[in-house]
Structures are given as C-alpha cells and as structure tokens.
C-alpha cells in the first residue's frame, strides 16, 4: 500500500536519493543526540579517566561520586527549586495577566485600543539589554537584589503573551457567547474567568510551555540580580561549576546532566505538544 502511494505523490522516486536523505537524517540525528550521550559518559567517569588519551567513550562507574561532588560544590537542589519557583510563578502570572489583557484587546471596546496594542507589539522589538543597567539599579533600589522576585516580577511583562492571547481569543471566543453572558448579568471579569478561560486552555498550554522554557533557561538577568549563592537559579549555579582553576569535568557534566534530565523527560513525554507549541508560537507571529 505504501509503495503505491509513493508512486503517486512521491517527490523523489529514486532509491539513491532516498538513501541520501536517510543518511542525512540519521547523521544529523546522531549529531543532535551525541552530546547527550557524551554528557552521560563524562558524568560517570572520574577526572583521571577523562584526562587520558584516547578519551573515554563509554560510561564509567563514577555516576554517584560525581554527583556527590556536585552537591558539595553548589546547592544543586536549592538552585533547581529556585528555578522551578521562578519559572512556575512567571508562567502562571504571565498566563493570567496576558489572557486578561488579550481578552480586553480582543473583546472590549475602549478608546486607543489599537494604538495601545500596537505599542505592545512595538515593545517586542526592543533588545532587553537596552535597559539592563538601570533595571539593575531599580532592583537594587527596591531592595530586591538576590531575591527571586527580582526575576519573577519583571518576567511578568510579556508582550508576546498578550499578542498571542489576543489572537486566540479574538478567533476562538465568539461574541455571541459573551453577549449572552452579559444578558445574564455577568461582569467583564466574570466573563473572563468563567467563559474565556475554559475556552482558551490550549493557548495556555502553548504560552505556558514557551514562557516556562524561556525563564528556565534565562541566564543573563538572574546572573546580574541573584548574587547570593543560595538564590542562584540552576543556570547560574551550573556556570559556577566552571569556576575552579582545575576543572573536574566529571563533576561539571554530572551537574549539567542532572539539570538537563528533568526537562528532557518532560519533553519526551509531551513531545508533540512541545513541538506544536513552539512552532505555533513562532509561526503565528
């Protein structure tokens, strides 16, 4: 059956080109996957074994020891928790604030609506480094240095999220439903809470994944404002593993491995949703 179909709509019919395509796909997949394997190899070998020629290419017995060294060197679990707190709070906050604003832009009439919306789109063009230095001093003035809210609160400002939710609500929530709710005496907030939110949950998933990934991986801003080691996010903590003059690669990659694994597991479980979310988020803007 497959063969027939290929005859009809196949772009390439020669097996040579097919072979070529497979070779390329397998090659690139191996390139994509190899660093993960290698991270594991390093994480399970002692530094002595790593510092040899030729290099080790198979997993060794130092899995536990290397991770224990990580725990001695950085507050690994504390940093993971900090990252989780920051990324979850920002994600939750962005979802609520952006859908609320998106609802207003999509369904409520108010003077200046279009200009205010265009303004939000315009802010997406501003490189984040432009305000970096004064932002740092604002955080200092507020007394938020080395507090997680220094990352959480500015993170709630998300122009893309508003754009995304506006587009979704404008097409996904029909005016009749809102009109009907109004006749029943619902306030705008109640309409948002009871009617709009249940209807836009798929958009929440997409936005949530994008925001969580962005905040989880953010490096520069947490590096600037979270200076106490106990307040480091995992990204900042991982970098500090590289500070030792004599680098223990087994230990460094053990930390990196354990910081990467949870995200990989979540991704593998929900890979369709993940890929769809990232593509939608990119393509529709």
């Amino acid at each position: 059956m497959k063969q027939n179909k290929n005859e009809e709509i196949g772009i390439k019919k020669f097996s040579l080109s097919k072979l070529l395509v497979y070779t390329m796909l397998i090659g690139i997949s191996l390139v994509s996957l190899f660093p993960f394997y290698w991270m594991f190899v390093m994480a399970t070998n002692s530094n002595n074994m790593i510092n040899k020629t030729p290099p080790v290419v198979i997993p060794g017995p130092f899995f536990k020891e290397n991770f224990e060294k990580v725990l001695d060197s950085i507050p690994f679990f504390g940093s993971m928790l900090n990252s989780l707190i920051v990324a979850s709070s920002v994600t939750l906050g962005v979802i609520v604030l952006c859908s609320l604003a998106g609802f207003a832009f999509a369904k409520l009439e108010f003077p200046g609506r279009n200009i205010l919306f265009l303004f939000i789109l315009g802010t997406m063009m501003i490189p984040p480094q432009l305000g970096l230095i004064p932002q740092y001093f604002i955080i200092t003035e507020l007394g938020w240095l080395s507090q997680l809210k220094a990352v959480i609160i500015p993170g709630l400002m998300n122009a893309f999220g508003i754009f995304w939710m506006r587009q979704y609500i404008a097409s996904g929530v029909h005016d009749e439903i809102i009109e009907a709710a109004r006749i029943d005496g619902c306030s705008n907030f109640r309409i948002y809470w009871n009617i709009v939110i249940p209807m836009v949950l798929p958009a929440f998933a997409t936005l949530g994944i994008i925001v969580f990934m962005t905040i989880w991986g953010d490096y520069m801003w947490p590096l600037v404002v979270l200076q106490d080691q106990s307040m480091h996010t995992i990204q900042v903590a991982l970098r500090s593993l590289m500070d030792d003059r004599v680098r223990d690669y087994g230990m460094i990659l053990s930390g990196t491995f354990w910081a990467t694994v949870p995200l990989i597991i979540v991704f593998l479980l929900f890979n369709r949703l993940f890929i769809k979310s990232i593509t939608d988020g990119a393509v529709k803007s």
């Binding site: 994509s32 996957l33 660093p35 993960f36 989880w216 991986g217 910081a259 995200l263 991704f267 890979n271």
Partner: peptide, 11 residues
Amino acid sequence: IFLPYVTSIVA
C-alpha cells in the same frame, strides 16, 4: 533533532 532546543543554553 528538536531535543537540543530543550537543553538550556548554559548546559
């Protein structure tokens, strides 16, 4: 092919 994108830039 998509897996590297899930890895943080620091990692």
